[in-house]
């Protein structure tokens, strides 16, 4: 799953280079240029992918370290 999420992030970076829309003047809802609407979609997709990254790719060592620091902090009387 971890590899899939990282793969999708790389794919998103590739899709960012939207050469097929370079010369398009199409207006979404007659207002927003497609070149802007598409990239707003890239921003939304990025947020969704980061949700997946946090769920499946969160660094375990940081979690462990955090627990370790909490224990040390408790042992030292709660002062950090």
């Amino acid at each position: 799953m971890k590899k899939l999420v990282y793969g999708l992030i790389i794919l998103l970076a590739i899709l960012h280079q939207d050469f097929w829309l370079w010369d398009s003047q199409y207006l979404v809802f007659d207002i927003v240029p497609i070149g802007l609407a598409y990239h707003a979609g890239i921003s939304l997709a990025a947020a969704l992918l980061w949700i997946a990254a946090i769920k499946y790719c969160w660094p375990d060592d940081v979690e462990l370290l955090e627990e370790e620091i909490m224990h040390e902090s408790d042992a030292a009387g709660g002062a950090r």
């Binding site: 970076a13 960012h16 070149g35 802007l36 990239h39 707003a40 921003s43 990025a46 947020a47």
Partner: peptide, 14 residues
């Protein structure tokens, strides 16, 4: 023009 968003904003989101 419109390319500025893709250049700096959506790229920054990633």
């Amino acid at each position: 023009g419109v390319g500025v968003y893709g250049m700096m904003a959506s790229s920054s989101g990633i």
